[in-house]
């Protein structure tokens, strides 16, 4: 059974003149439980919008997104927030750690709006990503690679069934990017979470057994290219 199932998903935006143009047009897409899928696409092709739709941050114009059997689309914002908090983790390109909070608190915040804070699990995750000694540091006191590891721990904090990663290595050098990607994949596997990663970097995609070009699944990108 797919953890993520998408049917006829459409999302468009109106330009300043009021002309509405489609950004996402995905007839069908799915990710199985525990599966790791990578999507490649050039900048501005709608990858982030697609992930935000999957996360329920954006409301689709039409279509159906199902997360672990629960329909996300058409639901109120509050319900979508709840589903996101319970079922999903999100790793951002810019990490999006909260600067006023320690590494441990950042991870705890990843739990608080879902199943509730579990300090032991948060500590265990930080130990797992190699930050046992730095869990009480604030993000500014951590290196870029360490910040990304905190972001990974936070994304996994709430036992998510699906982890969304938007250019998670975009801000890292080649060496750190490889390490971070390996870590994300390992931790998702260890926690039984599916991973949907988007990136513009072909080297990253090559490491995934299942990877698509965003144009393959997004009709709108395909049509633009033709």
């Amino acid at each position: 059974m797919p953890i993520l199932d998408i049917k006829d998903l459409k999302k468009g935006y109106a330009d300043p003149e009021g002309v509405r143009s489609l950004v996402v047009d995905v007839p069908a897409f799915s990710v199985d439980a525990g599966q790791q899928v990578a999507l490649r696409g050039s900048s501005g092709c709608g990858k982030t919008t697609f992930l935000n739709l999957v996360a329920g941050i954006l409301q689709a114009d039409s279509g159906v997104i199902t997360i672990d059997g629960e329909i996300l689309t058409g639901r109120s914002e509050s319900v979508r927030d709840k589903l996101r908090a319970r079922h999903m983790g999100y790793v951002f390109q810019t990490f999006n750690l909260l600067q006023g909070y320690t590494a441990l608190e950042n991870v705890l915040l990843g739990m608080m709006f879902g199943k509730g804070a579990d300090t032991e699990r948060a500590k265990a995750l930080l130990e797992r990503v190699g930050l046992a000694e730095r869990m009480h540091y604030r993000p500014r006191a951590l290196s870029v690679g360490q910040q990304q590891r905190v972001a990974v721990a936070r994304a996994l904090a709430n036992h998510p069934k699906l982890v969304l990663a938007d250019e998670p290595t975009g801000n890292l050098d080649h060496h750190h990017a490889d390490t971070a990607l390996r870590l994300i994949r390992e931790i998702c596997s260890e926690n039984g979470a599916a991973l949907l990663l988007v990136s513009h970097d072909p080297k990253i995609l090559d490491q995934f057994d299942t990877h698509f070009d965003f144009a393959d699944i997004n009709r709108r990108v395909r049509e633009s290219a033709q």
Binding site: I57, S78, D81, R84, A85, R86, F92, L109, M112, F113
Partner: peptide, 9 residues
């Protein structure tokens, strides 16, 4: 960020 982590409005 908080909203992306699941915090409601």
């Amino acid at each position: 960020i908080l909203r992306a982590l699941g915090a409601r409005r």
